[in-house]
């Protein structure tokens, strides 16, 4: 079976991989690139556990075919920290106990980063709607919302 050669930038590094045309970006990242931070919770675009940024847009990696990202720039949870220094969202999720099992955390971090990149001072309601595509079954969202509020505050103060 002929596989397609894809060239991308993943978390700042030029990354090449081979893929079938029908393979999702999520499976390509996990199986071919070896980045398993993005998770599959549903495979149908309903849970947000697979959220990554493709050219600065939050995307459900399970809904994109891998060949579609040829030439794109991708950010996954593995690329959020900067040379080992955690992103304020990561730090606030830790300090605010915004994760229990943690399977949803990579997706929330990416969606929250996308929100704060666009809107550095969101209201609680704006945060809740921006994260409405990310399911968390453990936390009831309370501590996640607070962690995003806290990270936004810290980032504004920086």
């Amino acid at each position: 079976m002929a596989r397609t050669h894809i060239t991308t930038v993943v978390n700042g590094d030029e990354t090449e991989f081979l893929t079938e045309d029908s393979t999702s970006l999520l499976n390509a990242l996990r199986d071919e690139v070896g980045l398993t931070g993005a998770k599959e919770g549903c495979g149908t675009g309903d849970c947000g556990a697979c959220s990554v940024m493709v050219d600065d847009k939050v995307t459900c990696a399970c809904l994109v075919f891998a060949p579609e990202v040829d030439g794109s720039t991708i950010l996954t949870v593995e690329g959020l920290a900067d040379s080992g220094e955690l992103h304020p969202l990561q730090q606030c999720f830790l300090e605010g106990a915004a994760l229990q099992c943690g399977i949803c955390t990579p997706g929330f971090l990416i969606s929250a980063k996308a929100l704060l990149d666009k809107n550095p001072d969101p209201t609680e309601t704006e945060i809740r709607y921006a994260l409405a595509g990310n399911l968390c079954r453990c936390t009831g969202y309370d501590k996640i919302i607070r962690a995003v509020q806290e990270a936004a505050r810290e980032m504004r103060d920086q």
């Binding site: 931070g37 949870v77 990561q90 830790l94 943690g102 399977i103 955390t105």
Partner: peptide, 12 residues
């Protein structure tokens, strides 16, 4: 186990 879980390293 928090750090592994916010950096995507945790193995599920």
């Amino acid at each position: 186990d928090g750090l592994e879980k916010v950096t995507g390293k945790a193995q599920f």
